[in-house]
Design a protein around this nucleic acid. Structure first.
Lengths: 232, 232
DNA sequence: CGATGCCTTGACGGAATTCAATTGCCGTGG
DNA sequence: CCACGGCAATTGAATTCCGTCAAGGCATCG
């Protein structure tokens, strides 16, 4: 969110200050269709900021079984691990038609060597990635399935709020299967938990449309300790 | 491991090249007793390399319930998230008497601005942290408890091997409780799984002493897909 | 219309947690 | 030296939770 703006700023600053014909930050916008792959595991060279649409990242294991590793909405950065590791650890796939901004790693790192702003920016990017990973690992340590599902919903809610959208009512862009994979649960469990939360009046859900009616109670579920969770 | 050496190198290079009286990298060794805290959540200013002993990092939640986020042995870096995020996300506690090397963040980042080696070094540190988090995330998505336990054992085995110790036989420095917390399991489950693995002849365990007798089979457990795992 | 994909729901079995009791270990103090 | 207490770990029994299998609903699309 803030990141993409800062990145743009850095790029712009440089463009203005230097009158060379070649751009300093290699950025270009890529249009992509739902289901298509933006980058692949093992590739390197660029990171990507979501401009439009929603994306997931995933790992394909030995049996070609997909494991979802993250969800990204406009303003989010994908593939930041390549900055530090030299290559992408996962694929990025568009959950709907969208656009992404490709930013060359080399020029980004190169900039960081000369430009203080770019350096702070790079550091911020890596920090955000580390922070994101911390967050998801903590969520996965929640043994209780309800907590994982609620955690995801509240994370999405926060992300929407940060972007000026409603924190209470939003559209899930991923399938139940993708949610389940991301959370390390079975699709049926996810479905059942959503129904249960609805029956208890904590939210309404029909298809992909969610309405968090009792966010206080939802937060309460997350904070409950131990491996049994009370609904009401 | 390699990191601490490189860090030391960077420090040394600078010490030699510059004849100013003040040291360029603020490093100092801290002795610590078992159970004591090396740094705390929210603090900032330094990262730490383990010199001697074993450490854990943890988060204390609202109810002062501890959640273990990592184990560290000599050569490992703790608190790298503070480099990018400005403050530590977790506490570090010594699992036994030991020593850690404190490295000031400011000077490290400052070095990175002028010194190419230090910059690469910084990047490597952050990359390692991201890599570590990727790894643990994947492990936690293994829903089956056996896989998590075996995963931890094999990770420890690798780490010991990397440091020149036996990969087959080693001493667990953490309690079952800490293992369970780290793995998102109950202590009883951890205990039972270890017993079961022993009964199937994959390892021997008595107290904290582990002997991996059939690492091939142990690796096999990790690679099994789906939510049921066959032992033999 | 049927086919397909996605989601929901039920029934069942296996897996992990909980509760409770026991064992083993180690240091302390008698 | 042994007895004792405290802590860690194991083990058992009962329960709860979650995954699997199966059936059915409900859209979309050809």
């Amino acid at each position: 969110m803030r990141d993409i703006c800062l990145l743009a700023n850095v790029a712009q600053q440089r463009q203005e200050s230097s009158d060379t014909t070649q751009p300093v930050l290699n950025m270009r916008t890529i249009s992509i269709r739902r289901g298509d792959r933006l980058f692949s595991q093992g590739q390197s060279g660029a990171i990507y900021a979501v401009r439009l649409g929603f994306f997931k990242t995933r790992i394909l294991n030995a049996h070609l079984r997909e494991q979802v590793t993250g969800f990204y909405m406009p303003g989010a950065l994908m593939g930041a691990d390549a900055l530090a590791l030299g290559q992408h650890g996962d694929d990025a796939v568009a959950l709907e038609d969208g656009e992404a901004c490709e930013i060359s790693c080399n020029t980004l790192v190169g900039q960081a060597q000369k430009n203080g702003d770019a350096r702070q920016q790079l550091q911020r990017i890596l920090g955000q990635e580390i922070s994101r990973l911390h967050h998801t690992t903590q969520r996965l340590r929640d043994t209780v399935a309800v907590q994982r599902v609620v955690g995801l919903l509240l994370d999405l809610s926060d992300a929407f709020a940060l972007r000026g959208y409603s924190a209470r009512s939003f559209l899930l862009r991923m399938t139940r299967n993708e949610m389940a994979s991301y959370l390390g649960l079975s699709i049926e469990t996810v479905s059942r938990i959503l129904s249960r939360l609805q029956n208890h009046g904590l939210l309404q859900i029909q298809g992909k449309l969610v309405n968090l009616t009792d966010t206080k109670a939802l937060h309460g579920i997350l904070e409950q300790t131990g491996n049994t969770v009370e609904l009401e």
